[in-house]
Design a protein around this nucleic acid. Structure first.
Lengths: 327, 327
DNA sequence: GGTGGCAATGAAAACGTTTTCACTCTTCCT
DNA sequence: AGGAAGAGTGAAAACGTTTTCATTGCCACC
């Protein structure tokens, strides 16, 4: 009932093989090619991608698995990956795990069953570790996060350096009891925490670190409690944009003034961060570059499956705004 | 080389038909079912979805085509659709058109070639009109936007009423020269504009309407110019969250005070809108409900292809904040 | 005790493509 | 002049499943 390549072949008076070649690549005379194209138009033929993929054993699809699509960081990265993918004639499957290892496992299995060409993945620590042991049968590039060294290609921020940059900046602004709230699920948060701790210690201060699920609600809750304790911090570093938003909310609820009562700084130069008063001091990540590099790593891996594991590290840029400028 | 269902069959000592039935639904004895499951585990078999879809002629996939994934409204709706889809055992293909009719056409063609079960689509006016004429061979539900009446199922906000709500509120706050900036690409923006105009006229005021591409940059530019003209408005209504953000930026650049110099109100209760000072008066859309309703409409359509076209209209909620409260 | 129906199973067809293989013409080289 | 090489084409195999169809037991019913 649905029109297939044989209908086109009949309409064009050629074999199905010729139609296939005319539509794809293959030696076909100009005359026949035109006939086929005409027949395609006439019949309204639409190739069946499932059949095509099955036969050709090439899905031309890459999977992008991110932790939270509501996080502007990931939507920005997604856009970059999408653009690169389509430029290379590849389709994209976008999945969203909510930082849940079960959903990660489910989506990874899906990727295998889809026989995707490759996967770009921002894993939780749990899944990153698991993946280092049992290998997938599809090439995967980690993005924003890493697992054990040498297990997978990855493109990440220089998180330790970036966190240290924030700490040093806050110290330079006169803050001394600088707390740090870091996401509980990712290697990235861990690295930022490590960078924070060494920078704090290097300055002779004492670290005060906590962790929470990397979303606005959890962060707001945690920061709220923190600020009402006996010896609250005089500045706070948050490990991503959502958590930074939660912290701003908690600060407002507590009636604290920024930057005088509390200095604030964090990661991700999200669109809203310069609209609040005072503007938020943040580390800007090269989101487009991260996405583009991830695709690039993936393609290289596809071309040369046995080449050594690569890790691309990009630098963040400190954007100073009012939230850290004690008057 | 890759392991298929025949390998599992061999390992379990049964036919491929039995394996298929054991994995899907079909009458298989408990004993064999267990054998098959064991064999699947042993061999590490992963079904090939392309083959499955080709043979079964059921992709169990729905396509979601949105205009701008960076718009929090659409990411929120996406989440709702995704949840509903996976709850129903369906996969989701998420596409992003950037309000570009060419990309819309490309993705629609892709949906046909993927043989998706159904499509949920936020079209530009151009594509919505085109689609009313030539019909797709896949069921489609419009979301957030509509085309010509009676052509497609849709779930939308009561945009006219919502816009009128905003206008009436601003008038009640004492504003008189209320301008409206509306997106140039969607039916939704048109409806909001219509609602704005009738509400303004009803109050005996004169409408002042402009339109721009529905993104922050274009809005900022347009509002910036507008505010520097001879008789600038004393209040502004923006037709979505991104445009509202652009307007806030332009207002700041112009050095105008909100709400005293300029009242501000718009659509979409995005996370940042209550963090800026003053908070922004907005229409909150029932995003989760929109996504859920869309899936529901789609499933109903699949069950009963010939039932009459349905249009679900949801109401927005006015969230009053400081940006419209002239002191 | 035959017969009809049903559950469980396997062999083989079918899904809609691409690709292999074989074949026919050209054209080009020696 | 006599291949060799290569371009253009069609017939048929192949991709990995699900589904149809046939077969076998088994049980229940008259």
């Amino acid at each position: 009932m649905t029109i297939g390549i044989r209908d086109v072949a009949r309409a064009a008076g050629v074999s199905t093989a010729t139609v296939s070649r005319a539509l794809g690549r293959g030696p076909v005379s100009e005359a026949l090619k035109r006939q086929v194209e005409e027949a395609v138009r006439l019949t309204g033929y639409r190739p069946n991608l499932s059949a095509r993929r099955l036969r050709s054993q090439a899905t031309r699809t890459i999977g992008l698995i991110v932790a939270d699509i509501r996080n502007p960081f990931f939507t920005a990265v997604s856009r970059a990956v999408e653009d690169a993918a389509y430029a290379a004639g590849m389709r994209l499957i976008l999945c969203n795990t909510d930082e849940d290892p079960d959903r990660e496992a489910m989506y990874l299995r899906l990727m295998e069953e889809e026989r995707v060409t490759g996967v770009i993945f921002a894993p939780t620590r749990i899944t990153a570790d698991r993946l280092a042991a049992r290998d997938l049968d599809v090439p995967v590039v980690f993005i924003d996060r890493t697992g054990p060294p040498g297990a997978h290609d990855s493109v990440v921020l220089d998180n330790e350096a970036a966190a240290a940059l924030l700490v040093d900046h806050l110290i330079g602004c006169g803050y001394r009891r600088i707390g740090g709230l870091f996401g509980s699920t990712s290697s990235t948060a861990r690295e930022r925490q490590a960078g924070y701790e060494t920078a704090i210690r290097r300055a002779g201060l004492v670290p005060d670190m906590r962790s929470a699920p990397p979303n606005a609600a959890a962060s707001e809750l945690c920061v709220g409690r923190w600020l009402s304790e006996a010896t609250p911090p005089d500045a706070l570093i948050l490990s991503n944009g959502l958590m930074l938003m939660g912290a701003v909310r908690a600060t407002r609820s507590a009636g604290l003034g920024v930057p005088d009562d509390l200095g604030l700084a964090g990661f991700d130069n999200d669109a809203w961060t310069d609209l609040v008063e005072p503007g938020l001091t943040v580390i800007e990540q090269p989101v487009a570059e991260i996405g583009a590099q991830a695709m690039s790593l993936l393609f290289d891996r596809l071309k040369a499956p046995d080449q050594p594991i690569r890790k691309v590290t990009l630098s963040g840029r400190l954007v100073v705004r009012g939230s850290s400028q004690r008057g």
